Amino acid sequence: MVSAAASAVMTEGKAVADSRPILVGLLGRGIQQSRTPAMHEAEGRANGIAYIYRLLDADRMGVMPPRLSEVVDFAEYFGFDGFNVTFPYKQEIIPLLDELSDAAQAIGSVNTVVLRGGRRVGHNTDMWGFKESFRLGMTLAPRNRVLMLGAGGAGSAVGHALLESGIGRLMIGDIDTARATALADRLSSRFGADKVEAVTDIVEASQAADGIVNASPVGMDKLPGMPIDSALLRRGCWVADIIYFPLETQLLAEARRRGCRTLSGEGMAIFQAVRAFELFTGTAPDADRMKAVFSAFGGAPPE
């Protein structure tokens, strides 16, 4: 299926190459092992689009990396059509943008920026990405009470997705209690006060939870470890992680060892990329094809 914006570059039902390359990237820190460029570039080729995807890794920009505003200026100056945004910039990027989509505005987090007509427009495809992954990977999973760890930009998107997926009550825990409370208040205003609470007693919350979701960066290659004591993982409680590198986080490995049903960050990584690709190109991609490219990396850590 191809969106209306892409129909202008169709000839006899087959996509033809765009008149110029599409140049996009991923902005973040420690992202050299990302699978996102391969997914995007392969899908561009499949649709006849000259598509270039580059990493804008602040960890590779010298001892004193440029300010975020300077990197965004750089992307505009060198003709980028847009870029994805990952840890730790999903909220920091917002003041630098001209406009936010309805989803990005509601969530308060941006993971995709489209540069077009001299304007910077922020979108959030993380929410839909996690929602689709959860729908497909956690069918019939109990969802009366869910504990979410992490209340940052990713946590905001995942919190919205969980509540839209029918979670009865979402408990939010974060090392920054003020941030957890702020996110709980924001979600309560949209979904109802009876649906959300900020929690400080993670032990008590985990015992009451049907499922636990890690929406924090703890477990990434550059932030190894677990966001919760392994002793709190019990059989019958499902566990999801949004981290994609490594795909097999310590949390998921330990949860499986203890008999928990698990959901990795693979689905969210793929589905957020599906929506981002369409925003960049105007062409609706093939999600199964992008998943095949993601999976082709075998044991290599993904983004």
Rank of each mutant, 00 (worst) to 15 (best):
G153R: 00
D59F: 08
G82I: 10
R135S: 15
A151V: 07
M61S: 03
V146E: 04
G137S: 09
V146S: 07
L162R: 05
D98R: 05
L96T: 00
S189W: 09
G117C: 15
A141H: 13
V121F: 14
T139E: 15
L162M: 04
A103V: 14
F87G: 00
T177Q: 12
G79W: 11
R120Q: 00
L149S: 05
E204F: 14
R60H: 09
K90P: 02
I94R: 03
T125Q: 05
T177W: 09
T139S: 15
R179D: 03
D102P: 14
M148I: 11
G166S: 04
G168A: 06
S101W: 09
I94W: 02
A184W: 07
K90C: 03
D102W: 09
S109M: 12
T181F: 05
T200M: 10
F74A: 15
I202K: 08
D102Q: 14
R143Q: 11
P142I: 03
F130H: 01
V121D: 10
I94H: 00
A154F: 02
M64G: 09
E99P: 08
M61I: 00
V113D: 08
F191C: 02
A182C: 00
I94G: 03
R116A: 15
A161H: 11
R190P: 04
L149D: 05
F78W: 15
E76H: 12
I172F: 00
E164M: 01
D73V: 11
M138H: 09
G79I: 11
D126K: 11
V113H: 14
Q91F: 02
A75T: 15
R60N: 04
R186M: 14
D185M: 13
R60S: 05
G137K: 10
F130D: 06
E92N: 06
L68Y: 01
A103D: 15
A182E: 05
D126H: 11
Q105I: 00
G150V: 06
L100D: 10
A106M: 08
D194W: 06
S101D: 13
G168K: 09
A141S: 14
R116P: 14
K195W: 01
G108D: 05
E92I: 01
F83K: 02
E197M: 14
T181D: 14
G152C: 07
T181S: 12
R120W: 03
F80H: 15
D102K: 14
H123T: 08
S165Q: 08
L68V: 02
R116G: 15
S101G: 12
